[in-house]
Amino acid sequence: MAEKKSLGKEFSKGILAENPVLRLVLGTCPTLATSTSVQSALGMGLAASIVLVCSNIAISALRKIIPEKVRIPAYIVIIASFVTIVQMLVKAFAPELDEQLGVYLPLIVVNCIILGRAEAFASKNPVLASAVDGLGMGVGFTTALFLMSSVREILGAGSFLGMSIPFLSQNPVLIFILPPGGFFVFGILMAVVNRFAEKKGKPRAELRGCEACPMAQTCKLNSCEKTEEKAEVSA
């Protein structure tokens, strides 16, 4: 059936073709910040996925009720509510994870992936498709985080999920779990992904100004390039 097939597509596009981190370059802040260990990366991925699926469902269900003009604030309130719920759950049942994620847990609110999916997908599609889309994007986000954090934890701390690896744990390359290592691993990962994408004839991942930015339509500037132009004129 056509619908079933398209649901599968909605799910898988988030993991490969439209991976939010590696292809769309969204949500870079939590990716860099929480990938110091596999455990915190998986925790972050899971928390963000839960918020993503729930907010996609809620926004899609309310898409005909929310007036066009106030939709962004409405989305933000919905997302913030789910983030608060997740925050309370994590605090109650996984206090260790809460400590690891720290300020980045409440900051899921401003994760561009979530608002971006709300604006680009959930506001236009039925509930089931939106839920599947959210799940796919969540899995894609978690996969990217897992890749990043595996490299960083294995090289930087000589362990994987807390289990130490014989040779590496005596000679950890500390810089990989320090901030510069985050930028470096992310850069190399992007280069590798670009290489594969190019082989398949797909466009390489670039920071896309306003196309990717969820604020694009509320933003009166229409495009970030315009911002730069305007800035040049005023300067």
């Binding site: 901030p179 510069p180 930028f183 470096f184 850069g187 992007m190 290489r195 920071l207």
Partner: peptide, 21 residues
């Protein structure tokens, strides 16, 4: 070629970050 654009920008950011360490 395949470091052009975003990847090299991130690697450069990494080096700037080292200086802040």
């Amino acid at each position: 070629k395949f470091l052009k654009g975003l990847p090299i920008t991130l690697v450069a950011a990494s080096l700037v970050s080292v200086s802040f360490l």
